[in-house]
Nucleic acid binder design. Structure first.
Length: 863
RNA sequence: GGGGAGAUGGCGAAAUCGGCAGCCGCAUCGGACUUAAAAUCCGAAGGCCGCAAGGCCGUGCGGGUUCGAGUCCCGCUCUCCCCA
């Protein structure tokens, strides 16, 4: 009486794992720590616990890392596999404002729900290391680490034009504003100058770029980070303003084109605009400045857009020409395609060799001068085309005749010698806007004195607790909600006894995730963020898995903080995440009618190979898209597990395709995985019998001789292990499951030949994927301990190749026959066998050439 | 606009050292078992032609390299994702 009962088996083993703390990993110095075991730290990007819970797409990465973690444990690694909550942030607060529920309460509910869901999947996290970024025991150290940045001069306050969202009543980072609307909620945003906390990430630009070479990350992510950092080499050149005595400094990546600069453009916000603008141009200039402020940087930078700008009335001297040379007199304009934050906020314009300058000159009838001759064959100004590539310098005084790279170097030399310029490197990367006028975040541990001084809260006075507030709505004027907690704001500087005011901003949602992988190493420490020993042992993260969506922001911020800690001697590695892996998106089917309108998935039924709308019978087109509530195609793991069990759910998640690929969730495919699980069960257990396991697999069962079907299965087991190892190597775990299914099909054909020793190894291979069933079978077989801690089997090469192998025979590259030859047959023997096998295909033909690839194929080239 | 990834049966996919295209699964069809159905088991199946044997065509499209290309090179089309 042993039918397969997924629920019973899974709840029992989940309870067992919990009560025995089966997946707790030990730190150096703790009882049970094995100093000989190598460590493996496998980390998921921890979730923001939203109210809607996990869907099957989140679970993909978590199941993937779990399968990897479980196998690593079996391979003898001390595995750190933790989970926690990125719990501070805007959505919780928005929700709280809408519902009146305190974010602390909703966060607690949501994290409890997430944890329940994760446990239901049977994930082997070390829950003793669970962390919550909104817990004072955690954010105490976030504040402490912020002070380390502050100490090192990397946190400063500045009046900067920032995105202000009227609806959310807060400033947002550049990356949180899309097309002038907030990423969260899609509310309109405007730019406004405000005093804000900034982090000097630009000070680390060079190292963030260079150290990408140290880490094993997807090239695509590295490219995106390099792009974001945007290093460019060039020169800074000073242009004197006529009649004014002032000077405009520009940055250019093409100092060799100086002699082609026929005008200049300043960012509308550039400080010099005010002083150089002539009286007759003032009205036009000011009107234009006002307009530009409202635009996003993207709109302004868009090269495809028509150029706008106004003349300031002022002229500057191009220093490439002698005083008095009319070619050196260049008009100064302002235009919004020049950004204040990039380079110097001013450019020299070379309309002959820069697309945007060219468009601008065309639009306003400014002079175009050729100073770079295109190489033979390439189109240049002579053909009416703006030439931006490398060529030969012309009309350029001291650098005439030089190829662009040499011309650049010579131009810089020439500028330096005359004291009008120097080599310079700039970055697109900007400093990081780090404050928010919101409630649900880490308070800044800083005190403002009456005299304007700012001092850190002493370390022993941390954490600065977020005050309990009932009304934490943003104020209409944009001032921070914390400013209204009067008792909290007013305090005493413990060092001087003087009254001071607390800083009332909070940190952005990214703050908590800038160091959480370090806290997981030593999560209960109340003397330090983490101990040096723990960090030296566990760091860096060996495998970090998450969506490619975080390619830039989180991963760049995290690297930045980590490098600061490295410089401060707090961590021992220059990079936090040695290997990064991006799991693919889980998409879902959605359905469109003939007009392209989307039809909710629950109103659709299949008809043959097509799909129709239930109500109307209209034929629908099945499309693949992301899961969204509005499409009613979000799938919750709870439902799948309730119907099929966690082992089936895990198998399906992994069987869908390679971990890195995007692939659609197809509910019709899940029963296939369930069938596999049931077939495994029936191979081992006779549901009708008394015995918990078939006698041939029980402890003490006689091991038959390795011959006939048993030998074939033995080879099968070794091949299975080898294929599985390979699958882990490539993260295409679907092929491991395909291999298990293939082996199972073989074993089911000759079940009596399947031995206990083979069965044990099969269960071990199954264990990372379907851990509940594997543990249950392991126990029923009377095997020692838990399969989760058993030693992963090794394939023996002697069993991987059959004595006879099949060789395809081609004639002129076309497959014509297959011949069987001994595995070690000589090429001549293989060719002879192939010639016989090809038979009639060679009759009457002249064999020009024979290609024999040992163990692979034979190809006859004939005429 | 910039950047990234991808395109293989009705569907998810496999074949990454250039060597039998389609392992494994889903859906489909046929058979066995059953009073019947479900479940289970066995079998078929890329397309076209053919009773069959067999042949031809086939990895988004067009070229190229090679004895041999899903895989490498050049050009194109389309899709998805990311950044704003």
């Amino acid at each position: 009486m042993h039918p397969y009962d997924a629920r019973a088996i899974e709840t029992q083993w989940q309870r067992h794992w919990k009560s025995t703390q089966a997946f707790r990993s030990t730190n150096p110095g703790e009882p049970g720590f094995d100093p000989k075991a190598p460590k493996f730290y496998v980390l998921d990007m921890f979730p923001y616990p939203s109210g809607s819970g996990l869907h099957v797409g989140h679970a993909l990465g978590y199941v993937g890392t779990d399968v990897i973690a479980r196998r690593k444990r079996m391979q003898g690694f001390n595995v750190l596999h933790p989970m926690g909550w990125d719990a501070f942030g805007l959505p919780a607060e928005q929700y709280a404002i809408q519902t009146g529920k305190h974010p602390r309460a909703t966060t607690a509910e949501n994290t409890a729900n997430f944890k329940r869901q994760l446990e239901l999947i049977g994930l082997s996290y070390d829950w003793s290391r669970e962390i919550d970024t909104s817990d004072p025991a955690y954010y105490r150290w976030t504040q402490w680490l912020f002070l380390k940045l502050h100490e090192r001069g990397l946190a400063y306050q500045a009046e900067v034009p920032v995105w202000w969202c009227e609806e959310l009543k807060t400033v947002l980072a550049n990356e949180e504003v899309i097309n002038g609307r907030s990423e969260r909620g899609n509310h309109p945003c405007v730019r406004r100058p405000l005093k804000q906390w900034m982090l000097k990430i630009t000070a680390y630009a060079e190292r963030l770029l260079a150290d990408l070479d140290l880490i094993d990350w997807p090239e695509s992510i590295k490219i995106q980070q390099r792009e974001w950092i945007g290093r460019s080499e060039g020169a800074e050149i000073r242009f004197d303003v006529e009649h004014d005595g002032g000077a405009i400094t520009v940055f250019t990546t093409r100092p060799d084109t100086l002699w082609g600069a026929t005008f200049m453009v300043l960012a509308p916000e550039h400080a010099l605009v005010k002083t150089i603008t002539t009286a007759d141009r003032r009205a036009a200039v000011e009107a234009y400045q006002k307009e530009a402020t409202a635009k996003s940087e993207l709109e302004r930078g868009d090269a495809s857009k028509t150029k706008t700008g106004v003349f300031t009335g002022a002229y500057a001297r191009n220093p490439g020409f002698e005083a008095g040379d009319p070619r050196g007199r260049v008009p100064v304009w302002i235009a919004d395609y020049v950004l204040l934050g990039y380079g110097t906020g001013a450019i020299m314009c070379v309309p002959g060799h820069d697309e945007r300058d060219h468009a601008f000159a065309q639009a306003f009838g400014l002079e175009v001068r050729e100073v770079v001759l295109p190489p033979k064959g390439a189109k240049g100004l002579a053909d009416g085309v703006c030439f931006t590539e490398h060529g030969t310098a012309v009309n350029s005084g001291p650098i005439d005749g030089l190829a662009t790279p040499a011309a650049k170097a010579k131009a810089i030399e020439w500028l330096v010698a005359r004291g009008i310029g120097k080599a310079r490197v700039t970055y697109k990367l900007r400093d990081w806007l780090f404050s928010r006028q919101r409630y649900w975040g880490e308070p800044f541990p800083l005190l403002h004195g009456a005299d304007g001084s700012i001092v850190p809260v002493p370390e022993d006075a941390l954490p600065v607790l977020l005050p309990e507030m009932q009304d934490f709505k943003p104020a209409p004027d944009g001032s921070a909600p914390l400013a209204r907690a009067k008792d909290w704001v007013t305090t005493i500087d413990p060092r001087t006894g003087k009254p001071v005011r607390r800083d009332t901003d909070t940190m952005p949602g990214w703050a908590g995730s800038c160091w959480y992988w370090l806290r997981f190493m030593d999560p209960k420490n109340d003397q330090a963020a983490f101990s040096k020993e723990a960090e030296r042992y566990w760091g860096p993260v060996d495998l970090y898995v998450g969506g490619a969506a975080h390619a830039v922001m989180h991963l760049l911020y995290a690297r930045f903080w980590h490098k600061v800690f490295f410089d401060a001697g707090i961590v021992s590695t220059p990079e936090p995440f040695q290997k990064l892996f991006n799991q693919g998106m889980v998409e879902a089917f959605a359905y469109q009618d003939a007009t392209g309108r989307l039809v909710a998935s629950d109103e659709v039924e299949p008809r043959g190979h097509a799909f129709v709308q239930k109500a109307s019978g209209a034929e629908l087109q099945q499309i693949v898209t992301k899961m969204a509530k509005s499409l009613k195609n979000v799938v919750n793991p709870d439902d799948i597990i309730a119907e099929y069990g966690a082992d089936t759910f895990r198998l399906y998640e992994m069987f869908m395709g390679p971990l890195a690929d995007s692939k659609p969730w197809n509910p019709r495919d899940i029963p296939g995985c369930r069938r596999f699980v049931e077939r495994v069960w029936r191979l081992f257990v006779d549901p009708e019998a008394e015995a918990p396991i078939k006698p041939q697999f029980a402890l003490g069962a006689k091991e038959p001789a390795l011959e006939g079907a048993t030998l074939a299965l033995e080879r099968g087991v070794h091949r299975l292990v080898a294929r599985t190892d390979d699958a882990f190597h490539h993260f295409n775990l679907n092929t491991a499951i395909a291999a298990m299914m293939g082996f199972l099909n073989d074993a089911m054909k000759t079940p009596e030949a399947f031995t206990r020793s083979q069965a044990l190894r099969f269960v071990q291979v199954l264990a990372p994927f379907a851990p509940h069933m594997a543990e249950e079978l392991w126990q029923r077989m009377g095997a020692p301990g838990e399969v989760a801690r058993s030693a992963w089997p090794r394939p023996d090469p002697a069993f991987l190749v059959d004595d006879e192998i099949e060789i395809p025979v081609q004639v002129n590259g076309r497959h014509r026959a297959t011949v069987k030859v001994p595995k070690d047959a000589e090429p001549a023997a293989v060719e002879a066998a192939a010639r016989a096998g090809a038979g009639a295909h060679l009759d009457g033909k002249e064999v020009v050439k024979v290609v024999v690839v040992p163990k692979r194929l034979v190809n006859f080239v004939v005429r």
